[in-house]
Amino acid sequence: MKDWRFVVRQLVRNPLSLMGLILIVIFIIIAIFAPLIAPTPEGHQRPYMIPRDGYRAAPEPPDEDHIFGTTQGQYDIFYGVIWGTRSAFQVALLVIGITLLVGLVLGSLAGYFGGIIDEVIMRITDIFLAFPALILAMAIVAAIGPSLRSVMIALTAVWWPSYARLIRGDILALREEDYIEASRGLGASSARVILRHALPNAIYPTLIMASLDIGAVVLAAAALSFLGLGAPEGYADWGQLTSFARNWIVGPPGEPLKHWYAVTIPGLFILFFVLGWNLLGDAFRDIFDPRLARR
């Protein structure tokens, strides 16, 4: 059991992981305090819909009213990215959470029991893995109807097979360990062995992958939203904001970077969010790698 003090110390020592930690903490603070940082205007009904300041198409540059400017349709970018942090966390945690659950259950059943159960589950994962992930996700979203919820459903459906495989492999390796055999020798039921012994020991690589994937999920959700298959127009979601910027990436001739804020600012938020989780995930991997001695 890694001493949590040791974990925190290792995280803080390494400058890269420290940066990751700081980034994530900043995002968490933004998400929690979103109503304070970007207050919803009076009378505005649904906080997740970005308030509009007019109906003009062209994005406006940053000024005192709109710190980050406005994007197509005069949606406030600042409000959008701040509340978008909440959406990002929602999507990421829900998708990864359900994926972990499904993947762990199926993966551990397949790995521990082997035989026909293993074969069946593995064939099912094979079917899912046969499709290119993003294409399958797009198809699912298109079938259900675009919305953030369908994005989450689609991403979950596409993501769980890799977790199932990962856990299955780790449990397969663990299965022959002495302490598992000793447990069976004591009379433990299979459920007990899996839940109490196998999973707690096998779960670390999966948790590492999960922390790395949080960033990847947000990126994928943003990609789907950018293509118009995600959140509805005006929803506070980073991907949605980038989809607004689609037509304004290159400005009028002579001023190609005129509307840089429309695409760069949501893009930067996505970048730093994913970077933070990646660094954190890498740091976790270094800490929990059993081959690295505690030196």
């Binding site: 059991m1 360990e177 002495d178 302490y179 055999e181 000793a182 020798g185 020991n201």
Partner: peptide, 24 residues
Amino acid sequence: RLSSLRRHAQLVHQDPFTSLDPRM
């Protein structure tokens, strides 16, 4: 019957470094 046997007959493994669950 198997469960009952387990109460009466036990085995101690060779390697004490791997026969105890490291996370318990």
